[in-house]
Amino acid sequence: MSASLLLPAATVGNLLVWIVWIAAAFACLASGAAVVSFTNPFYSALALIGNLGSLAVLYLLLEAEFVAAAQVLVYAGAVMVMFLFVIAYLGGQADAPWAGGPRWQTVGAVTAAAALLVEVIVVIGIKAGGRLSDEAAIRESFGSPAEIGRLFLTDHLLAFEITSIVLLVAAVGGVILGSHARSETGPAAPDVQA
């Protein structure tokens, strides 16, 4: 590499990280805007997969390897496949992004989102700006599955167990919702025919 002859290796690495960050951040924002603005829900779901993938790249830059892997496997894999199945089942119903509702509702939505953005940026800039410059040193095992598992089974054991209950309740709720919907539109019940 000719660049490494001129510059120290750390500078080249820093530059590479910046380039990857800018590409991932741009992909993230563009696909987020695409999710909100696409008319067809199928394309919105595909754009969200891109959003989740570029977020996984950012997680890797933050040295959160396990979370990045979980993001790709659980989110971009399982959850989005479920989304795509439901959208395919319902049929792509077009929904124009700026058309629905009265005019003041659209203006209000844009104002609320912009206010939230400004609020967060101002809080970051004013309250925390000076204290966010120096990074803490991290251990070698930071973000590894072993470290995550150790935290889950020691410090955060209660949260871990409660999460399993939440998932169980959601699974039972999904089954109940599906079976009720089936009995509504299915063939008439046997006791009615008898």
């Binding site: 820093n14 990280v17 960050w21 987020g32 909100v36 659209t106 912009a114 939230l116 970051i124």
Partner: peptide, 28 residues
């Protein structure tokens, strides 16, 4: 190496605002 935490926080604020816009704006 690379951007410090402020950049990530700004990006997350933009993402959150984009999501808010979608929740408030869309009908589907």
């Amino acid at each position: 190496q690379g951007p410090d935490v402020t950049w990530y926080l700004a990006l997350s604020a933009f993402l959150f605002a984009t999501g808010t816009l979608g929740v408030l704006l869309r009908r589907s």
